[in-house]
């Protein structure tokens, strides 16, 4: 079934060395249009490093990160700066929330619109019709995103004053504001209570249904991952040890040994 869907992201043999430490070891991974793919694995397996390699924060030692936007030429992302990667259409959130605490909630989302708008210094000073119109559009689209994630009531609060779960959702809204076609979520449910996790699950499904965005997420919450993702990739010690549908992953002895085994023991 995956074969007839458009392939968006293709990672081939990605390797990342830090001195003598091989944090990511020839990982191959694909994300197709409309997918909610998940990357799981024990702590320290190299998942976040993998994300950082894709999004340009690290420059991978070996391997290819290829982006196939629909109807456009394939782009190789290796060595591009993070802001260029975001412009290509890959947006991410962070494992430990990285909002702009002293900006309002709406402004946080408005920052996401930065790379899709273009008024410069002089136009900002003169503030002509064009700039005002652009500003209006930025505010409007940002506001709509806030409504989508259910934060419209907090639009003019400082983002540091938001409760934890709302901060996570704001990060997602901010990433969505850059108009990506692939959304990378780094442990979006970390530290959330069961109710917040359930809300998040709904939100992710809603984004996947309503927007033209594929999603790749790193997550430790197995219930969430098994409910919504397909395919699932499993990493351990920097290597990919399994991939497949939730059922295949559940039945895979390697995965049970590396990861889920601990849960059945407990």
């Amino acid at each position: 079934m995956a074969d007839n869907k458009h392939k968006l992201l293709e990672v081939k043999g990605l390797t990342m060395d830090f001195g003598g430490l091989r944090a990511v070891d020839s990982v191959t991974l694909e994300v197709h249009e409309g997918d909610i793919a998940a990357l799981i694995g024990p702590n320290g397996a190299g998942k976040t490093t993998f994300f950082n390699c894709i999004t340009g924060i690290y420059n991978p030692t070996k391997g290819d990160v290829l982006l196939h936007p629909k109807g456009q030429k394939t782009r190789r992302l290796n060595g591009l700066k993070p802001n260029k990667v975001t412009e290509m259409g890959l947006a991410r959130t962070f494992q430990n929330i990285r909002l702009f605490p002293d900006m309002t909630v709406l402004e946080n989302v408005m920052i996401g619109r930065h790379c899709r708008t273009n008024s410069g210094i002089f136009r900002a000073i003169i503030k002509g019709k064009g700039v005002q119109e652009e500003e209006r559009q930025i505010v409007e689209s940002s506001y709509q995103l806030l409504e989508k994630v259910g934060l419209a009531d907090f639009a003019n609060e400082f983002s540091k004053n938001l409760p934890y779960g709302a901060q996570r959702r704001l990060e997602i809204a901010r990433a969505m504001a850059t108009d990506p076609f692939l959304l990378l979520l780094d442990e979006p449910a970390a530290g959330m209570n069961p109710q917040e996790t359930a809300d998040l699950e709904q939100l992710i499904c809603k984004i996947s249904d309503e927007e033209e965005m594929a999603i790749l997420l790193i997550e430790h919450d197995m219930k969430l991952v098994m409910n919504i993702s397909d395919p699932i990739y499993v990493m351990e010690y920097g290597k990919k040890i399994a991939e497949g549908s939730p059922q295949e992953i559940k039945d895979n002895p390697k995965v049970i040994e590396a990861y889920l085994g601990e849960e059945t023991d407990a």
């Binding site: 999004t55 924060i57 700066k81 993070p82 802001n83 975001t86 412009e87 947006a91 991410r92 962070f94 990285r98 909002l99 702009f100 605490p101 002293d102 900006m103 920052i111 996401g112 930065h114 790379c115 899709r116 901010r174 990433a175 850059t178």
Partner: peptide
């Protein structure tokens, strides 16, 4: 506020 988040937002 946050340089890494800023660059990740395409700035």
């Amino acid at each position: 506020e946050d340089e890494i988040a800023c660059v990740a937002m395409g700035i």
